[in-house]
Design a binder for these strands. Structure first.
Length: 113
DNA sequence: TGTTTGACAAGCA
DNA sequence: CTGCTTGCCAAAC
């Protein structure tokens, strides 16, 4: 299924494109994505973009978490996000994820097609 | 057009 | 470890 990228701002397009590259069973942090966009301070803006995410399933925004390993938020509810993560065999202890294990490599997200 | 908002991050007490 | 403060940004008001 294709996404109408035209209806989004350039910034949002970039964010969605990167998030779509996060492989199953892996996660990325808002800050990590922000850096790839060029500046770590984009973190908040990234969260904002995902909050307005029109296709929460197509764009795996549940794989985007906070830099300290906490889950963060989710449009459809934090619980739903946790459920999706567990489905991908990602362990969650005390509402936290082991970044050393599940954090995706930056290089993977930088590849654009 | 100026201000507020928010799914963040890092530093400090 | 918990809680508060400051810095920054794109969008929505």
């Amino acid at each position: 299924m294709k996404i109408d990228l035209d209806k989004f701002s350039e910034f949002e397009k970039k964010v969605y494109n990167i998030v779509k590259k996060i492989p199953e069973g892996k996660v990325a942090t808002y800050g990590q994505i922000a850096k790839i966009l060029g500046n770590k301070y984009y973190a908040r803006a990234v969260g904002n973009a995902l909050n307005k995410n029109p296709y929460p399933i197509i764009i795996p925004c549940h794989r985007v978490i906070k830099s300290n390993g906490e889950i963060g938020g989710f449009k459809k509810g934090i619980h739903e996000k946790i459920k999706l993560l567990k489905k991908e065999n990602i362990e969650i202890k005390n509402n936290k994820i082991n970044l050393d294990k599940y954090l995706v490599n930056d290089a993977v997200l930088k590849i654009n097609e």
